[in-house]
Each structure stands twice: as C-alpha cells, then as structure tokens.
Design a protein around this nucleic acid. Structure first.
Lengths: 186, 186, 186, 186
DNA sequence: AATGAATGAGAATTCATTCAT
DNA sequence: AATGAATGAATTCTCATTCAT
C-alpha cells in the first residue's frame, strides 16, 4: 500500500475544489479523501470533523481574498480609479473561472439555519469586500454614500454572478463589472 | 390512529415551507410528513420520490409567480409605470416575508451539479421574470436595451435579496427596489 | 425480503441477552439486530441510540426485579423468615442462570466514568434491594442495624456472584445464600 | 520534537492509570500515549498490541500485590493476627485510593467472554489472595474451614468494594474490613 | 527510539424507499 | 389512504496497527 504524504494546504485546496463542485451536504469525506489520493479515515488526521474542515476552508479563502484581492484597494502605488479596475478585474476572473458563482454565497445559502458556524466567516468576507470598496469610493463621495454604493456594487456583482451560474451564461457578470468600472472608475 | 386527509396542494405548500427553511438536502421526507401531520410512508401515496416532490414544488411556485406576480406586467388596466411599481412591491413583499432569499436561487445553487432536474424549472422562473420586465421596459426603451435592463434589474434584486438573507438585514432589498422604481418607474 | 415484525419487549429482551453476553462496549447494534432477526438500521425504529436502548434495558430489568423479586419482601401471606428465604432463593436462581454475575454490577463497573446515564438506574436497583432486605430484617432488629445488615448481605451476595463469575464456580454464591438464610432466617 | 525516553515500567504504570479510569474498551492507545507524553505510534515500540499491554499490566499488578501485600501473610516477624490486620489495612488503603473498585474485577467482568487472555492472570490474583488468607486462618482453624473463610472474606471485601464504587460511598469497604479484623484478628 | 502520516476495518447513525396490513 | 415496520445503502467518525523517516 502506497504511503502518500500530503500537505495541510493541499488538503484545504482539494477540499475547496470538491465543496465548490458539489456543495456542502453532497460532498462526502470520501470525496475529499479521493481528491487527495487518500482513504477517508486519513482525513481525520488533519481535521476533527467535516464541519471543522469547512470552517478552515472558508477562513483560508476569506484570507486569500483579503490578501490578494481586497488589499488592492489599499495599494498606494496606484490611483484609486485603477485600484477599482484591478479589483473588479480580479474578482471577475475568480468568479468566472469557478463557473459556480461565489463560494461564500453558495455555502452560506445552503447551510443557513443548519450550520451556524459558517455564517460568521461568510459575513466577514462580505464586510471586508464592502469595506475595501467603501474606501475606494470615499475618494469621490461622502462617507455614507460611499458605503451605500459599495453595498450596491457587491449586491450587483453577486446578483450577476448568481445569474451567470444559474443560467450558465457569462454575460451577466461581465456586463456588470463593465458598468461598475464605467460608473465609478472615471 | 388519526386518518387525516390532506389535499395535494397542502402537501405542496407544506413541502415548500420545509424546503425553504432547511434547503433540499437537509430536509427529510419525515420533516415534510410531520409538517403535513402524516407519517413518512404516507408521502409516497402522493409523489414517487423526494426529487419528484421538489420538482412539483418548484413548478407550482413558478406558476404562482407567473399568475400572481409577473402577470401584473401584462395587465392593461394600469399604466406601465404602475405595473412596474406593483410588480416591485409584490416581489419585495414575497422576498421579505421569506427571510431566506429567493427559493429558486437557494435550491438552484444548492443542487447545481447534483440534481439536474430542477435547473430547467428554475431557468423558466427567471426567464418569465426577465420577460415580464422586458415587456414593461420596452414601452420606453428599444427592445435590446429593454432586455438588458430587465436582466440587470433581476440581478440587482437577487443580489440584494441574497445580502439581505446572508447578512440578516432588510435594507439591501428595500433600497434596491426603491432605486429601481425611481429609475424606471417615472 | 422477509418483513418480520418484532415487539418492543422482544427487542429489550434480546438486547439484554446480548449485553449480558458481551458487555456494553463490545456489543454492536448489529449484534442486537441479529439477535432480533433484523438489520441494524431497523433498531433505530425503536430507540434513538445505543445508550437509550441500554437505559431502557436497565429500567426494564430494575422493574422486573422490583416486581418479581424484591416485592416478595412485602408479601403478607408469608412469614418474614419465609419471605427472606424466597427472596434469597429467587436471586440465587437468577444469578446462577446468568453465569455472568449481576448485570447491574457488570454494566455499572464497565461504564463508570463514561456513561453517566446508566448509574442512576443502577443505584435505584441497589437501593430497592437494600430496602426490601432492611424491611425484612427490621422484624428482628432495630432500624439502623437492619439497614446495616441489609447492606452487608447485598455486598456479600454481590461479592460471591462476582467470584462465581470470575472463577467460574457456583459454590461461592450458593454458600453465601445458605449462610444468610441460616443467620437471619430463623 | 521532544525525544523523551520513557522506561518500560513507566509505560505500565501510566497504562494502569488510564485503564483504571476508563476501562479496557474505552481506553485508546492514544490515551495511553498521551499519559506517557508520547504519540500513539510510539507505544508499539514497547508492546505489540493493546491486548499484550493489558496482559503485562495485569501481570505486573498481580506481582505487585503478591510481593507487597499478600506476602505479609508469610512474614514470621509478626503474629498471625497482626499479619491479618496489616493485610486488611493495606488492601483497604489500595482499594480506597483507587475509588474505582478492584482493577482485576473491573477488567475481568468487562472482558469476560471477549478477551480470554486476561482471565488466567485475574484468577491467579484471586488464588494468591485466597491462599494467603487461608494460610493465616489455618493457625486457628482446620484446613478446609480456613479455605472456606478465606473465600468468604475475599467475596465480602470485593462485594463491599463494588458497592463503594457503584454507590460512591466509603463506608461499605471500611465497615467490612473492620468486621473481618474483629472476627478473625483476635 | 520516536514521530507522524496513512491505513482499513468497523462502529453508530441517517434516511429514502418499500410494502403488508 | 394511511400506517408502521423494515430495508439497505450511504455517511461520519474511530481506532488499532503499520511503517518510512
């Protein structure tokens, strides 16, 4: 019997892939083990439960967005307009490549009322997203309007991502991003 | 042993309630039977499987939206602007009272890639919604722009409904509807 | 596939048999299902968990002892000495036929520090036993001495039952009962 | 990575502690490793299986009783009555400090019919105990009566220890020992 | 020796579904 | 129709044991 080693971060990566593909309830520990080239018992070497694994996946992804995407909003090397464009481009890329809408939304809606533990990480993701947009908009707008517009943008992008996912058609998301950039980015 | 009769439409109604509350996978046939005052074996007198039940629930709800909400768009007794207002008011009411976002979206995202049968009913719901808005917008805009705007509106409403659900805050949805009415309804 | 029916009380009876034979931890739900001629999933039609099943078994057995054995102590149709003799004979019979010592003791010791729920039923069994002996002894002895002697007798019988079980030799239990009857029963 | 050395006898000591606390089946190799400050894989450097470990624990404890407790019966430096007293005092101390009855009894009952290997060591423990008491009683009683009384005493002490454990009350054991010393020790 | 990763054989439990009454 | 019992496959999780480093 081969004794393959895997890194914790590979486990998280593979788990994210499977959870994205099948959602939370339809994903079995066996599916995840398979994706890692392991047997199901081995997963419990890394995490103590399926729930704990999902929490770690969500936290990792939230941190990833924070560090790689939302942080662009605070990069002084670029003009605010350019930062907004970069941020929009980046999130469009991510959403499109996943073909399945936004992971936080999908998991959040699926596990609402059943797995409370996930909700706070999901809320943090949205709060960070909205905050980074608010920061950018506040270069041009008064504080409360900036926040309002940030919320609207997030809602629009998510709505478009959802349609893109449900109706299997890229255009919704692409068009929305274009509109946002035109509207604020000039 | 109570020998309660239930009407098919009550089964569908109760099923919808439970599915809304718990989602598809977390809902058991037992939950649904309980909600109907029956035992689980009895459900199979009405439907042949959990999947078939959900399909019927989705179809019923789609028809309900068509007949009670989207049909407002075609009611010649009112001005197009008023029809739009009525349509927006009605869907806001529905979304808000459910506290759980839009059922079609929730089920669609949860069962994507796992239960194909549901997707076509869900697509029909969106198509009818978009079509009814397109019709209204076409009083003021050229055909292709009307369609585009309809899609944007649906995306915005859904995005707002989702934030309202995930962040447990009415304002997103209310504000979006207000904006739409202002924008188009005058 | 045969669709055999079983009565709840048969489930309890068979469960008792298996738990007696293998102890709590070594007994699987499958073992119990087999003993009932069922498949393991079916057991959950009757009880919600292995623990709950054991609690019911313990309670049933405690009640059985109370109604069939300890109640002899309060039967006015016989002289106290005869009641004592009957009680001793009866419990000897039960202990010997089980070849495994006293079920309450076995389960109580095995699950100490791990399954708290069982302990209170077990304590009740001993309390009822001691109380019935106390009542009989109080015909001849002052109250506090009667209680003391009852406790000693229970300890002796249990000690003997244990040796009988561990060393696989009837004599310990038989001899102890004889001694008790001689000592008090005259 | 700490590379702690442990002595075989510490492993046995810690294993005994854990087995006493949790019983045989509820104790995991991990529990034992933890108690030793090791990880579970390391245990297999010392013993080849959980069963073999328990056998060694039982043998060690049996030898300990033989050398430190039962051997008192054969110590010519004291009068037989004093040896009996010392033996009683010693075993009371041990039983009371463990709060969990007698380890041989607990394990013997828990693993009866499932792990045969343990039973012979357990029988040896009882045989040595009975033999040492028989030897002491034979200073005053004919051989067969001495053996009989020894068996009765062991049964009484064990019965009392069991009640003490199950009912969480010292008195049973203490009272029994007092009685024994009074009865024989004069 | 000690570690830590992996294994694999169960364990308890869940649940959609079937079906005799 | 409704019931309630049974099924059996699937699922999460546990744990003694192995073994390369």
């Amino acid at each position: 019997m081969p004794r393959k080693k895997i890194e914790r971060k590979d486990l998280i990566k593979h788990s994210l892939d499977v959870f994205k593909e099948k959602g939370y309830h339809k994903t079995t520990i066996s599916d995840i083990a398979n994706a890692c080239g392991l047997l199901k018992g081995s997963i419990y070497h890394y995490v103590e439960s399926k729930e704990a694994l999902m929490v770690e996946v969500l936290e990792t992804l939230r941190d990833h967005y924070m560090n790689k995407v939302f942080s662009l909003a605070y990069d002084d090397n670029f003009q605010p307009e350019d930062r907004l464009r970069m941020l929009a481009v980046k999130s469009e890329e991510i959403f499109l490549e996943e073909r399945n809408g936004n992971f936080f939304v999908n998991i959040g809606l699926e596990t609402k009322n059943t797995v409370e533990e996930f909700q706070s990480v999901i809320r943090e993701f949205f709060e960070q997203w909205i905050r980074s947009l608010t920061y950018l908009f506040s270069f041009k707008l008064p504080e409360n309007e900036a926040r309002l517009n940030a919320e609207v943008v997030v809602a629009e992008v998510e709505g478009a991502a959802m349609l893109t996912s449900l109706l299997d058609d890229d255009q919704y998301l692409k068009r929305t991003n274009r509109k946002i950039i035109e509207f604020f980015g000039t």
